[in-house]
Simulated scan of single mutants.
Amino acid sequence: MNRWILHPAAKPLLWLVLAAPAALLLAGALANTLGPNPAEALIRSLGDWTMRLLCLTLAITPLRQITGWHALLRWRRNLGVATFIYGSLHWLAYAWLDQGLEPAALWADVLKRPFILVGTAAWLAMLPLAATSFNRAIKAMGGRAWKDLHKVIYGVAITALLHFLWMRSAKNNYGEVAIYGLIIAVLLGWRWQQSRRSPSLPTSGR
């Protein structure tokens, strides 16, 4: 598996897989096959994919340590960037399709609805992570500072989960929230245990 992950074609293939959900949603929007409320379907589907990719990004380190597939570290940064891209598409779809890209309407809606506020906060918190997701930024900041900054992803996960919870609570639909909550709790709990055992984890490869 490590050899396959390190194959030159693996990373382009990974990006094709990561782009597929967005491409399918765009095709559905153009073909008008997203259901009776295509705008809502597009916004929520992009949000769902953001949560899935966020969980997958957090799962890379546990998976590589449990399975011995250490080359998975090569994909972690790509998954983090993809999470940010889907989160940005999710927020932009809301801003465009729900609020017509009107700054005053956007500002009022963000302040009025708590789940929009925390979702926006989660997206904004990902901005510095995406902006420092390349090797030159790591060298410029230094490994320790870069690692400390990227711990923000844990807060992003909790804030994104709260956004998802408040959004689904309007319809008393907590099934998916419970699944994501369990996954995030397990992943963050595992990281907390590892940090107690080994405070100085390696920072290379992201």
Rank of each mutant, 00 (worst) to 15 (best):
M1N: 07
L6G: 05
P8K: 06
P8M: 08
L18Q: 04
A19L: 15
A20W: 14
A20M: 14
P21Q: 06
A23I: 13
L24P: 07
L25D: 06
A31R: 15
I43N: 05
R44S: 09
T50V: 02
M51N: 00
R52G: 11
L54F: 01
T57H: 07
A59W: 01
T61F: 02
I66G: 00
G68H: 04
W75P: 03
R76H: 09
R77H: 11
N78R: 05
L79S: 03
V81P: 04
G87L: 00
S88N: 05
D98G: 04
G100D: 06
E102G: 14
A105C: 02
A105K: 13
L106V: 08
V110E: 04
L111M: 14
L111G: 15
K112H: 14
I116R: 01
L117C: 12
L124F: 02
A125R: 00
L127E: 04
P128V: 04
S133P: 08
F134K: 13
F134P: 06
K139W: 07
G143R: 10
R144C: 03
L149A: 04
H150V: 02
V156Q: 00
T159I: 12
L165Y: 15
N173G: 10
V177A: 13
A178T: 11
Y180C: 05
G181K: 04
W192R: 02
W192T: 03
Q193S: 01
R197S: 08
P202E: 05
G205E: 08
